[in-house]
Structures are given as C-alpha cells and as structure tokens.
C-alpha cells in the first residue's frame, strides 16, 4: 500500500517529517496531586499522579529512595470496537513497566526515601502512538505534582514506510507492520531513556529514523516547557505574587 504519495503527502495529509497536532492541559483531575491530558492527533491520554506519599505496602518500602509505581490501562471506549480490555494483560503490563522505568529515570527518587509515587495513565482514545502520549502525559502530571525531576522526559515515535522515514505514526501507519521506533529522551541532558523498535531495519536507516524521532521528542519538549511556563505564570498570578 502507498503510505506516502509521490506528491509527498501521507494518508492524512501530513508530510513525512510532520507531527500530528499536539494539545495538552494541566490539572484536569482535582483530586490527584498532579494530572494532565495529552493529545497527539486523535490519541488522547489522561495521567494522574499521587505522591510522594507513605508506602502502602510496608514490605515494598525502599530505605534510600522513593518507590515509583505505574498503572496503564485503556478505556473500554478508546477504540471503535467495544471490546473489554482486561487490566492485567501482557500488553498493558509491558507498557506499565516501560512507563515506570522511563519516568523513574528522571525522577530524583533519592530525595524522597521511604515514600511512594503512583502514576496512573489511561488511554481515552487510541489512534497510534499511545506509548509516547502516555509518557508525555505522565511527565506533565509529575511536573504538575511538583515532583523533583532531572529533566522532562518526552517521547515520540517514528517509522519507516515506502522507503521514507515518517514521524509520529498514526494507527493506520502503525498497523502497516513496518518498523516502528518509540523513543524517549531527556531533552536538556540529551540522553535516551527509552528506545523500542518493532520489526527490523538496516543500521544506517535506523539512525536516520532515530534522528527523526529525536527531533520529534524535542518538539514535544518545547511545547511542554512552554505550557508549564504558562501554567506557572498563571499560578503566580492567582497567588497574587
């Protein structure tokens, strides 16, 4: 199938190097310590963060750093077909683990020994790139909760179809079965915290695709930073400082 037309347009009208429209909102869930909704095109994810708080299960307590837990789930209505999404299936366990490890890398856990941080992410609407959207939403929620971090973690995916590197695959492109690289970086430190790939790619092409994903991550980081800055200014204003 043709995913990029000879005119250089993808199926949804984007060019290969373009991301979908991103939109985010902070503080959407009042009860949580920090929360955010993150949208990449039609993919919509909500994240809520509780903590740092007392460790619920004493046995899991770590004496020199905070315990980070993460739970990923997909809303039953997130895809068109009404299928029950079991909570503990392999895919969501895997994604939970991926998100936890990625976030743990940037949280300064040693500052909060013997405490626990819970991250809940739920996919409200799925259209490809849920993993990236979840990580971005979690970053925002953590920042909103005021949890100390080394840097913002941002994530974006890139693929390779019709011999063209494509940024930010949507569901149709994702299900083409081609290589799909999901990347998570610490943009300021320029470090990679997450790198996953489905299918195979020759190494020289892989480098191009990864470069593209890095640029995508940086673009997301810029947007998130601006949003946080705006949010902080608003908070300042409300406090009347």
């Amino acid at each position: 199938m043709e995913y990029v037309s000879p005119e250089g347009l993808r199926l949804d009208g984007r060019r290969p190097m373009e991301m979908r429209q991103i939109r985010a909102e902070i503080g959407t869930i009042m009860k949580a310590d920090g929360s955010a909704v993150f949208e990449m095109g039609n993919t919509k994810v909500v994240a809520a963060v509780y903590g740092p708080r007392e460790v619920q299960n004493r046995g899991q307590q770590i004496s020199d750093k905070a315990l980070v837990r993460c739970e990923y789930s997909m809303a039953n209505f997130s895809t068109g077909d009404r299928m029950r999404k079991p909570k503990g299936d392999r895919r969501s366990t895997e994604i939970s683990l991926v998100i936890r490890q990625t976030m743990e890398e940037s949280i300064l856990t040693h500052l909060m020994p013997r405490s626990q941080i819970d991250i809940y992410v739920q996919v409200l609407q799925a259209d490809g790139g849920t993993r990236s959207a979840c990580i971005n939403a979690a970053t925002l929620a953590l920042a909103d909760a005021g949890i100390p971090m080394r840097d913002l973690v941002t994530s974006c995916s890139a693929g390779y179809l019709n011999s063209t590197p494509l940024l930010d695959l949507n569901y149709v492109e994702d299900s083409a079965g081609g290589p799909d690289v999901t990347l998570g970086i610490l943009p300021k430190l320029d470090k990679v915290t997450l790198l996953q790939m489905d299918s195979k790619l020759p190494i020289d092409i892989f480098e191009n695709v990864m470069q593209l994903a890095t640029e995508g991550c940086k673009a997301v980081a810029n947007y998130i930073r601006e949003l946080l800055l705006e949010n902080t200014k608003e908070l300042e204003y409300r406090r009347g400082v």
């Binding site: 199926l11 949804d12 009208g13 984007r14 979908r20 095109g41 039609n42 068109g80 077909d81 949507n170």
Partner: peptide, 10 residues
C-alpha cells in the same frame, strides 16, 4: 464499525 481519521488541510 465507525472509523474516525484525521484529515489535515494545508
């Protein structure tokens, strides 16, 4: 099934 797709205008 109902399919929703994005359509970018440039």
């Amino acid at each position: 099934t109902k399919v929703v797709r994005e359509h970018y205008l440039r």
